[in-house]
Simulated assay, not measured.
Amino acid sequence: MSFVKCCFEGGEGHDFLDSFVQKCTDPGCCCGCCSALRPRYKRLVDNIFPASPQDGLVKSNMEKLTFYSLSSPEKLDRIGEYLFQKASRDIYRRRHGFVIIAMEAMDQLLVACHSQTLNLFVESFLKMVQKLLESTDPQLQILATQSFVRFANIEEDTPSYHRRYDFFVSKFSSMCHSNVGDATTRDKIRLAGIQGLQGVIRKTVSDDLVENIWEAQHMDKIVPSLLYNMQSAEKYETLSCMETDTREGAEEVPARLAEACLRELVGRASFGHIRSVLRPVLTHFDRHDLWIPNDFAVHVFKIIMFSIQAQYSYSVVEALMQHLDAAGGAERARGSV
């Protein structure tokens, strides 16, 4: 009895030809005739995965894959799609170690890609990130967020007009409201959600040609998510726009990171977009009765006034007064009924 066999053994005629062009899936086959028929990019991708996920990414083979992708940039979309397919199967089989390796490979290829060829790879990359975010495993969600943030920090020469971030805004916003039982895990998920929103803002807010992040459908998710986390602060300390947050662990506390994200969002707002930010702020205060006591409301508006471009600060006061006057009028009308 032979323990090593060829998966094409015993084939005749047409049956043999059909089996010959199929991918070898039998671990007992070691003749090498199967893998030789596969496209080179698939063989290179397969080789970056170790026999055991604990061994991590095979770095020498990853270097070969990176060199190949740079030498043949037209293959980037196929490489990305194949990595996505492998990761999807591993997620389904709960082989999370291999999923982490696939995501690490995606990250390295993303950094190595030249800006001219980035669009060929980004679609598969974002599909991979979305797949991991859809997982119920917090570790995969956090991993996906970290990869998205790296992507957001890459400047692209040419914007992608058809790329949309609706899913990412919704998912990151929901992560900001995580209520899992374990406090440490909950904070990690919320931090990841805020970091993800920060990445979306940086990726979209400065380019008018891509998706308009200032639309109400996005601001109604982003702003309340930030305010929700800011409310969890034990003490409200408002820094002016000239000060830097040097408090220890500022990037590891959801409330502080949310405040930094709100500052960045307000600071990037042009005159036409200021009310897009203010409207969900005012609505949030109304819905959650945060006007009395007014500690948190004062804290938030100080942040807005310190962060906004100086020439637009009057519009904040104007919008606030109009809202309070309208709310007071409605209250008097109800009282007279």
Rank of each mutant, 00 (worst) to 15 (best):
T185F: 01
V58C: 07
R40C: 12
G13D: 15
E9Q: 13
L239G: 03
F151Q: 04
W291Q: 11
M305E: 03
V223N: 00
E74Q: 13
P53G: 08
S313I: 02
I48D: 01
A183G: 07
F296P: 06
L76V: 06
Q22D: 15
T66F: 01
M219Q: 09
F98T: 09
G193S: 08
L324I: 14
K59H: 11
A192W: 00
L118T: 07
R279C: 05
K302G: 10
S71N: 12
P53N: 13
D137E: 12
S225A: 15
L83N: 02
R163D: 07
L132K: 00
A269F: 00
K64L: 15
R279T: 10
T145C: 12
Y41T: 02
L282A: 05
D46T: 12
D26E: 15
R190D: 03
W291L: 14
E134F: 09
L44R: 04
F301Y: 13
E12P: 06
M62W: 03
K302W: 02
F271R: 14
R38T: 09
C241H: 13
S336H: 13
D245H: 07
A250H: 09
L118H: 09
G10M: 08
I79R: 01
C6I: 03
Q108S: 10
L83E: 06
L44C: 08
V281S: 01
I48T: 07
L282S: 03
M62L: 13
G267P: 03
I274P: 05
V58F: 04
V169H: 04
E318D: 12
